[in-house]
Design a protein around this nucleic acid. Structure first.
Lengths: 362, 362
DNA sequence: CTGTTAGCGCGTTCAG
DNA sequence: CTGAACGCGCTAACAG
């Protein structure tokens, strides 16, 4: 690192005068604070054109900008909502976020984005922080929060909307992918393509409702197709040891179904991996590439829920989630709650879209 | 979409009592607000153990949480800083963000993350919004803001530190990659690997200082190596028309250097593409794959500044930016400014790291 | 050690 | 149409 002084003068910052307040503007315009406040709140009809002009001028001259904090304090609402994300590293989150932002924009809300980076402790802290800042509502893409943690929030406290995952015991609105339909769609596709061996690969799913649903739907679809049941492999991406063990198990399966032995026996058949989400798919792809080389796809087919940008490049089949809509819808739900809608908790399940690529095409 | 009512009772939300205030706590503890305030601010030594215990109990009973807005209003500082990101879709941004979050965490700051989604208008609005919320400082990864827009911010107003890109005419701290060294590093590597034809591919760079520096360093390195000068291709990823034209130009170059003609003439040589950042690299890779098939890398080598997660999978060589450190450092700079440090604007240039992969190895 | 008092910047009655 | 006065939740002197 190098710290170079640029060629600018020693900071010609004008007298760091404090920001103008509503009182300053009133004085400058030769009127009272009330009129300024009215102007700010668009109650134009109650102001003489002449006064209005003076106010406008004063505001411009002083470069006045109302203090949202003070306004919030006074009115009891600050137009702030919390957006708690489990993992921004996952493209899913970023895409959902875009929907959230668009909706906030349209509804005059300001999202406070909190990134828990997959740490439960972080999540808890952020939730508390948001409460502390008196956000009017929260959108939660939970990691490990339990009902108690969210109680002051979803319960009698501030409204909450869940994204992608449900929190046990908490009756809150939730919006996400129709996991059952999506997993079934993927499984059906693989079966139709004639794959004999299908492995569903997923992160530990005890705590995450969406993962549970995907696993269950996969199993059901396999059974419905007459297969005993699909293989399910649990991969904990955060734990190198168990991760390595899981991948080793997978390797054995691949070797025995497409390895030299199987080939000689005429039982050669490409194995298919169904990744429960993009992070899993990436991990699998990286591993397979490292083990079987650049042509790993000739031995293994890969299908994933989520459609990260590298999927097209790698040519893997995916089920794209309606991420933008999920985010947008979540904000709409939340907004309704904030505005006082008091029906019981609702669910909004959106369908995924199958995008077939070379990986699973015949 | 289906909206199913879950099987929970019609919302057993307890009387939505309003949150307890400091006054409530004082009453509950049978004391004055001041003592509560002192307790909250950790001035324990000034409180009798007995009173302290009563306060603790009252707080717990009421589930009291101090209102940050009110605190901020009173003290004149709210521990909020703005983080304005040009494009969260770019992994670079997310990684920088992680450093920012860690630093904020350590310094007791709360980042308000704003995502401009590559739109100048959004950027302007967010900047204004942040001002309005009286953030104590801003970290800006600018798109198109000009000095005037940032004036109320970097100028006499709230402190600002720039990330990755400089804003013309604004004397503010800035932290980012040492673009000159990075581009030179990449170019040198390609030359050492014996590539004859090297194209530097970059988005429109007139407005973005980091891109300018990369282009310039590339040219310089090529000249120093005795080549006349490198080819530079400008690709506007947002404009499909010019994008198509640019890619077509590239295709011609590739065909003539590695196509049938060149092969017959014995002049066969693999062309190398040097992408100025990950979004460009992805676009190139997608195009090349579409045009030349899965084995496109046998015809073209690709090197990119930025090291997105798919780089390993695709096997392309990269120059990894110290993104986490960039974010962390930016917050540290900003924190110093907030605390009143008043030296002239500083620069912090961090080095990139070359990661050689199959794409450019011989 | 502890309580009282006065605002922070703004919105909102309520009389002019 | 306009301004004075009060209070949102909290902190900071200033007394006790």
């Amino acid at each position: 690192m190098s710290t170079t002084p640029p060629s600018t003068p020693p900071d010609p910052s004008p007298p760091p005068r404090r920001r103008a307040t509503i009182t300053d503007v009133a004085r400058e315009a030769g009127t009272g604070k009330t009129s300024i406040s009215r102007y700010l709140n668009g109650e134009m009809s109650v102001l003489s054109p002449e006064l209005r002009a003076r106010i406008e001028a004063a505001i411009a001259r002083l470069d006045y900008q109302p203090n949202q904090m003070a306004r919030g304090l006074k009115r009891g609402r600050n137009r702030l909502i919390g957006m708690l994300l489990a993992d921004l590293t996952n493209p899913y989150s970023v895409e959902v976020l875009q929907g959230v932002e668009a909706a906030c924009h349209a509804l005059g809300l300001m999202p406070l984005i909190c990134h828990a980076a997959n740490e439960v402790e972080m999540e808890r802290r952020y939730l508390q922080l948001l409460t502390t800042y008196r956000v009017e509502g929260v959108i939660v893409n939970a990691i490990g929060v339990r009902e108690e943690t969210l109680r002051p929030v979803g319960g009698g406290g501030i409204p909450a909307v869940l994204v992608d995952r449900r929190v046990e015991g908490l009756a809150a609105d939730m919006v996400g992918l129709d996991n059952g339909a999506a997993a079934e769609l993927g499984t059906r596709h693989l079966l139709e393509q004639g794959f004999e061996h299908i492995w569903f690969v997923v992160q530990p799913f005890e705590q995450v409702s969406s993962r549970q649903l995907r696993v269950a739907a996969f199993d059901r679809a396999m059974r419905d197709a007459g297969r005993a049941r699909g293989h399910t492999l649990v991969l904990d991406l955060a734990d190198m040891d168990t991760l390595a063990r899981g991948l080793a198990e997978l390797d054995r399966a691949i070797d025995s179904s497409s390895g030299a032995g199987a080939r000689l026996a005429g039982a050669m058949s490409r194995i298919a991996l169904f990744a429960a989400n993009a992070p899993v798919a990436l991990r699998l792809a990286l591993h397979l590439k490292a083990r079987y080389g650049a042509n790993w796809q000739t031995r293994v087919a890969l299908l994933s829920i989520d459609d990260p940008d590298w999927a097209e490049l790698a040519g893997i089949t995916t089920i794209r989630q309606p991420t933008y809509d999920i985010g947008y819808r979540a904000v709409e739900f939340l907004h309704e709650r904030i505005e006082g809608v008091h029906t019981r908790a609702r669910d909004c399940l959106l369908p995924g879209e199958l995008i077939v690529r070379a990986s699973t095409a015949r």
